[in-house]
Computed example of a mutant assay.
Amino acid sequence: MQKLINHVRNYNEFTFDTEGEKSTKQLALIQIQTIPQQLPFFVILVELAHLPEIYPAIVYQWFEWLIKTSMVNLQLKFADWYSWAISH
C-alpha cells in the first residue's frame, strides 16, 4: 500500500473508468490508471461490492476535493472507432 501511495503522489494525471452492475444498474467498479511520463504505470481497481461506501476514502483523505478534471466519455465514440479500426 505504501508503494502505491508513493507512486500516486508523484502524478497529477489519471484516467478513471467506471462499470455498472447489469442486474442492479449500480456502480460496481472504479478503475484508476496513473499516466506517468515514464513507466511503470499503475491500474487500481476498486470493486464496490466489497466497499459499502466511498466515505472511508474521504475520512482518510485519499482524494483531495475538488478534483480538477476534464470529462471525456469515450464509450460514445468507441463503436465508430472500433468499426474504423477493424476495417484497417
Rank of each mutant, 00 (worst) to 15 (best):
K3Y: 15
I35R: 12
L48E: 02
I54S: 03
W84V: 03
Y60I: 00
A85M: 05
N6T: 15
Q61S: 09
A28S: 03
F42H: 14
I35M: 11
Q31V: 03
Q61L: 04
E47C: 02
L29R: 01
E53P: 00
W84T: 05
M71R: 07
K68R: 05
A79G: 04
K68Y: 08
E21C: 04
S70T: 13
K22Y: 09
L51T: 06
S83D: 07
T15Q: 13
L29A: 03
L4K: 11
T24Q: 01
Y82R: 09
T69W: 05
E19W: 12
P36A: 04
E19P: 05
S83M: 03
F78K: 01
A28F: 00
K68D: 13
Q33F: 03
Y11G: 14
A28W: 00
T15I: 14
H88T: 07
L66T: 12
G20V: 11
L45R: 09
T15C: 13
H50N: 04
Q37A: 11
L4N: 12
E53Q: 07
D17R: 06
E53W: 07
I44L: 15
K77Y: 05
Y82Q: 07
L51N: 04
P52Y: 02
P52I: 00
L74D: 04
M1E: 14
I54Q: 02
L27W: 02
V46G: 14
F42P: 03
M71P: 01
Q61G: 06
N6M: 15
W84G: 01
Q37V: 12
F14T: 06
M1G: 15
Q31M: 02
T69A: 09
F16P: 08
